[in-house]
């Protein structure tokens, strides 16, 4: 049967992995290629590179690492971060990525998704949505009951720094209509807390769109992965530090999920 995917995310700046990466068996923990190879061997189902380079030269360097990764790691690779145009998409796909993640630029100009899907195919376009809870009753927003009260979810852009006022669930419906193939949903509330994924939010997106949803933000324990797969219809879970700091290996998480009755690839 179709398995749930576990996806390590690498933040890459100027061709190097940033945020702490603690692996004794790596010669160079900052090399995205080497880390990708290790995660592949451990059973990662896909890889995501988030390019946080600030300069055009930095983006170019990151693209070179995409090419080197694609030459030796043969699982799906999504690259996002700083994608502003279909030309940027083309470069990333040509470098060897299988899918391209779009976020801020698509919020500012949704045609980017339509045009990208038309040129490169729906399966290539991942809509990355950063969203944060707003505990405020509104009749023009998609409201959800949570243990902490009723809230809606607001889209944030520029790496989670800038609120937009947009209803994230409505935005997800729009990206689906425009031809996105998948949603990478990051909870700005949960991100970095290690307290678990935002279950209510993930569930809302899985119910309100028919696209595959990758849950992101908040993974700290193996139980969190089980919870998000049990409690929501999400297809995949993404995490960074839990793998980088070697709190768990991918095998440990997958064995735990398998023993708990979740179908995962061995």
């Amino acid at each position: 049967m179709l398995t749930k995917r576990i996806i390590p995310c690498l933040d890459v700046r100027d061709g190097r992995v940033v945020k702490g990466v603690h692996f004794e068996n790596l010669r160079d923990a900052g090399d995205p290629v080497e880390l990708s190879r290790l995660y592949n061997e451990q059973g990662a189902d896909e890889l995501v590179f988030l390019d946080i380079s600030a300069s055009p030269r930095g983006h170019e360097t990151t693209l070179e690492t995409v090419t080197r990764t694609a030459q030796e790691v043969f699982i799906p690779l999504t690259v996002g971060g700083g994608i502003r145009s279909t030309e940027d998409m083309r470069k990333v796909l040509k470098a060897g990525a299988d899918k391209v993640g779009v976020n801020t630029a698509a919020v500012k100009d949704p045609e980017l998704i339509t045009e990208g899907a038309r040129r490169f195919g729906t399966q290539c376009i991942v809509s990355a949505i950063d969203a944060k809870r707003v505990y405020e009753e509104r009749d023009d927003r998609y409201m959800v009951d949570t243990p902490r009260g009723r809230c809606w979810f607001e889209v944030y852009i520029y790496g989670g720094r800038t609120p937009t006022g947009l209803d994230a669930v409505e935005w997800a419906r729009e990206v689906e209509r425009r031809g996105a193939g998948e949603i990478l949903l990051t909870s700005m509330d949960a991100d970095g807390t290690k307290d678990g994924f935002d279950i209510e939010m993930t569930r809302a997106f899985c119910t309100e769109t028919s696209l595959p949803v990758i849950a992101s933000g908040g993974a700290g324990k193996k139980e969190h992965f089980l919870e998000v797969f049990r409690e929501t219809g999400c297809d995949a879970a993404l995490a960074a530090s839990v793998f980088h700091y070697r709190e768990y290996t991918l095998q440990e998480i997958k064995s735990y999920l398998r023993e708990s009755g979740v179908a995962v690839r061995d």
């Binding site: 399966q123 998948e182 028919s210 696209l211 595959p212 995949a236």
Partner: peptide
């Protein structure tokens, strides 16, 4: 769900 996307047996 369509497309069928991911790892299957």
């Amino acid at each position: 769900k369509v497309p069928h996307m991911g790892w299957n047996s």
